[in-house]
């Protein structure tokens, strides 16, 4: 039987590992190592292969939750991990210089997969913004302009309830088709 899986992706420091940890009901398998480049200014370690966790969903089934590395040099892992995934969750770190540009990078890289399945978007690090609601409007407007009909939510990747909203939304999108 094929494994039911979803993939969290997005920029370095967007909260992918935290999101997988927030959701997982098993100890998360992580492949994080000490960063040797500018990432150390953001955090001590970085994911270089994948994060893996599991959560129970309805009907007694288990959903596998994968997190990708964020850096583009690990894009081969994006392809490997997204194979046969039900859908993609893209996290965008709003505190970065150009989060909309970041978002476009991931939309373009996962374009084929998003078209074949679906995607939801989570905007993180909004606590650093002066006006989070105004920041979110940037994304709503961008999605409207681009004709993206995907849900986008403000999330704190450390909070299970927030991250769960993304998963429930993704599963609901799949049910609706």
């Amino acid at each position: 039987m094929a494994q039911l899986k979803i993939v969290f992706t997005g920029t370095v420091g967007a909260g992918k590992t935290q999101a997988v940890e927030a959701l997982s009901e098993i100890p998360v398998l992580k492949t994080d190592v000490q960063a040797t480049d500018e990432v150390v200014d953001l955090k001590d370690s970085t994911t270089i292969a994948m994060d893996y966790g599991e959560m129970a969903i309805s009907d007694g089934e288990t959903l596998a939750v994968y997190g990708t590395p964020g850096q583009k040099r690990f894009a081969y892992m994006w392809d490997i991990l997204s194979r046969n995934a039900l859908g993609i969750v893209i996290l965008v770190n709003n505190s970065r210089k150009d989060p909309i540009e970041d978002l476009c990078v991931y939309v373009n890289n996962f374009k084929q997969h998003i078209e074949n399945t679906t995607a939801v978007f989570g905007v993180t690090h909004l606590d650093k913004a002066k006006n989070p609601a105004e920041e979110m409007n940037k994304y709503y407007t961008f999605f409207e302009q681009q004709g993206y009909h995907y849900p986008v939510f403000p999330v704190d990747a450390r909070k299970r309830n927030d991250v769960n909203v993304l998963v429930e939304s993704l599963l609901a999108m799949l049910e609706v088709g």
Partner: peptide, 28 residues
Amino acid sequence: IDGHLVAKIEARDCPVNRIASMGSSMMS
């Protein structure tokens, strides 16, 4: 360990640039 090429020597045509990040993923 986080996938940057530091140095390489190729005795024959054997492109290793992309292997750097893949190697770090595998080792991890």
